[in-house]
Amino acid sequence: MTSPYPILAILGILVVVMTLAAGLIWLERRLLALWQDRYGPNRVGPFGLLQVLADMIKIFFKEDWIPPFADKVVFVIAPAIIVGTVLMSFAVLPIAPGIIVSDLNIGLLFILGMSSIGVYSVVLAGWASDNKYSLLGGLRAAAQMLSYEVFMGLALMGVVLLAGSFQLSEIVSAQRRVWFVVPQFAGFILFLIAGVAETRRLPFDLPEAESELIAGFHSEYSGMKFGLFFVGEYLGVILISSLITILFFGGWMGPVLPPIIWFVLKMMFFICFFILLRAALPRPRFDQLMSWGWKVMLPLALANLLITGAVALAWG
C-alpha cells in the first residue's frame, strides 16, 4: 500500500508536519492562555497567527552560540538526532489510504526503534553541554525514557496481537469493525501515559524542569539548535497523537468525511489533550515518576498483555 509517488509523499508529509509543528507553538500558547483566562499571542496578524512567523524569524536570527567548554561535535549533532528520528518515524505512518511513504511490515517496531534512538539526542545534548544542570537533565532523560519505553512497547503488544501484524496499515484495517480502544482500553491508557513521557511533555518534563534544572539538557542551547529541540518536541507530540489515532482510534476511518480529514481531526484532538495536560497537571518528583513507571505501569502492561493473549487464545 506504499504510496505510488514516494517523493511527493515525503515532501508533502515533511512540509505539512513541519508547518504543523510550528503552528503548534501558536496553538499551545493560545490554548494555555484560554485555559488560564488570558488571550495569549493575539497581536501579530489575525488571531496572532503570524506570531509563529515572528518567532521563526527571531529564532533563525538569534546568535548561534556554542559554549567554549562544550564538546562541539556532539553538541551540534544532538539536536539533529531528535528531529531526524521523529521525522523518520513519520515515514511509516499511514495517514490515509495511499498517503504513506513506506508501508513497512515492521512499521510499529521501526517507530519504537526510532524513538529509542531519539533518547540519544537528549542524553548527548546533556553530556556535550558540560554543564551540571544539563548533565542532570540528560541523566533524567535517559532513566525516564528507558523506563517508559519498556511498557510503551508492551502496551502496544495487545494491539499487535489483535491485529496480527506490525504493519500500521494492517492495524488500521483491523479496526474496521471496532476501534482497538474498546478491547485495548488499558493498553490505550498505558500508551497515552508512556507517550507523554516519551515526548517529555508536562507532567513528565523532568529532563527540562525549568524550575529545578533551568531547562536541563538544553540549558546551553540557543538559536536554531535550540529551535530544533523545540520543533522536535512538537514533532514528537504530533507523532504520538498520530500513533494513538492509528493504533486505537481507527486511523483515517470514519463516515462521510474524507479519510484524511478524519485522521487530522482525531490527531488534533489528542494534541489538544496533550496541551490540556500541560495546562492542568503539576510535575511529579523524579522518584515518584520512576516508581510509578516500574511498580504500576509495567505490571499493568504485562497484565494487559497476558489477558489479551489469553483472550485471543481462547477466542481463537
Partner: peptide
C-alpha cells in the same frame, strides 16, 4: 483527582478573560 483537575481546567475555556 487528576481527571477532575483536567476537567476544571478545561472548563476555564468558558470563563471571562482577565487580561
Amino acid at each position: 483527582s487528576t481527571i477532575r483537575t483536567l476537567w476544571y481546567v478545561f472548563l476555564h475555556m468558558f470563563h471571562k478573560r482577565v487580561t
